[in-house]
């Protein structure tokens, strides 16, 4: 049953990647990448329960933290990127 859930999550991740490729706007792509990241955390948690792979949960926790920080970082970059030239000119 873990394999079934893992396959469902892989399909979800494929859909998110498709949205990241299609996405008309930049923010659609960021949203899709964020969704991809949260699904990666779930996938890592499931892999922990497949036989012969202990300690994947620690990686899942670390990945959740990194994913959050990276999304906020990218958003900050694009939020202030448009503003900086104006500040320099003024």
């Amino acid at each position: 049953m873990f394999a079934l859930t893992a396959v469902a999550l892989l399909v979800v991740m494929a859909f998110a990647l498709l949205r990241a490729f299609l996405g008309p706007t930049l923010y659609d792509r960021i949203l899709a990448v964020n969704n991809f990241g949260t699904k990666t955390v779930l996938l890592l948690a499931i892999i922990d329960f497949l036989p012969g792979r202990p300690d994947f949960l620690d990686i899942a926790i670390t990945y959740a933290l990194i994913n959050f920080i990276s999304i906020i970082g990218v958003l900050r970059f694009f939020e202030y990127a448009g503003r900086k030239p104006a500040e320099k000119e003024g």
Binding site: M1, L4, T5, A8, V12, A16, L18, N35, K39
Partner: peptide, 17 residues
């Protein structure tokens, strides 16, 4: 729980598209 969770994940992904 796992099957309904997978179902909701798929629903969300389809909504995303």
């Amino acid at each position: 729980f796992l099957v309904s969770g997978s179902f909701f994940c798929l629903t969300g992904a389809i909504g995303l598209l």
